[in-house]
Design a binder for these strands. Structure first.
Lengths: 150, 150
DNA sequence: TATTGTTATACTCTATAACTATA
DNA sequence: TATAGTTATAGAGTATAACAATA
């Protein structure tokens, strides 16, 4: 090929962000979007979003927990969680079993297929994380992790 | 009063987050939500969201810039920006003037009312930021700022 | 009475595609 | 042909309220 097929576009001209320079929330938001976009791209082949990955991870680590516990752990509203779980259940990745003891609760479990998908997801998520470390540099990555972890 | 009027609720039981412990994106997301909720509460009285604040701030610092420049600066898609600006224009906070030179562009400016509202917003946003520093502690706040700023 | 899961509604955000007017 | 702004649509996230079943 002689030349790029993509049309030449003017370099995106960026302006002064003014007082946003002094706001933590602005930079946290920009980083979060950038990280999630990379995550989504990396796991696109298996169609697992960041929220779905977090749900599978917590169920995997806490088999039999209830929806309310899952929601509290991840900060997801219980009404929102219902639809999230519906989709994963329809995909055959998890099941809602009757809870022993409390008739109001469901005990959440990954199915065999859910375990397999989660294993793939974890491999891709690890690749994503290594990519972050490479792009941010070890020092900055470590500084962020140390400052962010509660 | 003798007792709290709010019903007693069981302490939210939180589970193990498993492999999420090793993912930067998880912690960045949790922090971002926490910071934005605080921002929204602090500026609730004047009904300015984080996105609206960022738009007012960049227009204030770059009077006459175009929508595409504003979008590039903040990472906001131009289609989304249209509705954001519509609302602020309807509230009388900004105006879209004809650009000299290029008939396709608008030159964005804050109105007098927009300047006044932005001044209020900046005061409240500063209070929000001081609150963050107090809640996170100076060391952690500084570490985050240093690691986040590009 | 309170809690768990569910349904429903409304609003925001994000991602596209297509249209227009201008260049 | 490409760009700036606009409109429209669909999907996801967020915030509520209300309901049934169970405690």
């Amino acid at each position: 090929m002689t030349k790029s097929a993509t049309p030449r576009r003017s370099p995106p001209m960026v302006s002064d962000i003014g007082p946003l320079k002094g706001h933590l929330g602005y930079f946290v938001r920009r980083l979060q979007i950038w990280v999630f976009q990379d995550f989504i791209r990396t796991l696109a082949a298996i169609e697992i979003s960041p929220a779905q990955f977090s749900v599978l991870a917590v169920i995997h680590a806490n088999e039999g927990l209830s929806q309310i516990e899952l929601g509290n752990t991840l900060g997801i509203e219980r009404a929102r969680l219902v639809r999230l779980l519906n989709r994963l259940e329809r995909r055959g990745l998890l099941e809602r079993l009757p809870s022993n003891g409390d008739g109001r609760r469901h005990a959440l479990r990954l199915t065999a297929g859910g375990q397999a998908t989660f294993k793939q997801a974890r491999n891709l998520a690890d690749r994503h994380e290594s990519g972050l470390l490479a792009k941010l540099g070890e020092a900055r990555y470590r500084a962020l992790m140390d400052a962010l972890r509660p």
